[in-house]
């Protein structure tokens, strides 16, 4: 196996525990040197509402969502959005290097749930040739129940206030039956203000879903 970022061969470190306990070993797609550039979020100290690093109590932003009447998503994220992660996203989404979609799959293990990915806009899909969120999570069983209408300005080009004012653009696809399901986990690549994920949760509830909705992303 070669590292998808630097092309160097990857050595899997076999330990006796790995061999004897028959745990499923997922092959890593990044070498140790590349993986080390990224900063993991310490889950024990993350905000219980949004998974932000170093915020063991509910952060100010989550308190605002709560006051505005939104049930919290109890979001979890694996990595912080630092320089290394920005350049990863630039290569994956910006340049459109599809090979990178597997980069973190051995580390993306959200709790068992019904996974609903946040969809990409049709226009972006046409330009990139792939859906970046589906790519990151395509090792999980995904339910593409949400649809997104095209918006004039992508979230990535807005400031914080602009992001928060974005109107609802998600809807649940027709003929999807949500009756049998008790829990849904929304999946996204990046949690910034939470606006996108809370809109998606709203859309599911408007379509008649009454269970729990949580969310998960690669980056916070």
């Amino acid at each position: 196996m070669a590292c998808v970022l630097c092309g160097q061969p990857i050595q899997i470190e076999w330990t006796l525990t790995k061999i004897f306990t028959l745990t499923k070993v997922r092959a890593p797609h990044l070498c140790r040197a590349c993986l080390r550039q990224f900063t993991r979020i310490d889950q024990a100290n993350a905000c219980p509402g949004c998974g932000r690093a170093d915020s063991p109590t509910l952060c100010y932003d989550c308190q605002r969502w709560q006051k505005a009447g939104y049930p919290l998503l109890h979001h979890r994220a694996v990595f912080q959005y630092d320089g290394a992660m920005k350049s990863f996203i630039q290569q994956y989404k910006g340049l459109g290097d599809w090979r990178l979609h597997v980069a973190f799959q051995d580390l993306i293990q959200p709790p068992k749930s019904t996974y609903v990915p946040i969809p990409t806009e049709a226009g972006h899909y046409q330009a990139r040739g792939f859906d970046p969120v589906l790519g990151l999570f395509d090792h999980l069983s995904l339910h593409q129940w949400l649809e997104k209408a095209d918006t004039p300005v992508p979230q990535a080009q807005k400031n914080r206030a602009g992001r928060l004012m974005t109107p609802q653009s998600f809807s649940v696809r027709p003929l999807v039956s949500l009756a049998q399901i008790s829990q849904i986990t929304l999946l996204d690549d990046l949690y910034t203000t939470g606006r996108t994920l809370y809109h998606a949760a709203d859309a599911l509830r408007e379509a008649g879903f009454h269970g729990t909705i949580t969310s998960f992303s690669l980056i916070r």
């Binding site: 459109g96 599809w98 046409q126 040739g129 790519g135």
Partner: peptide, 8 residues
């Protein structure tokens, strides 16, 4: 090959 079908 990209999911949409074209190659890069």
């Amino acid at each position: 090959t990209l999911p949409i079908g074209w190659r890069y």
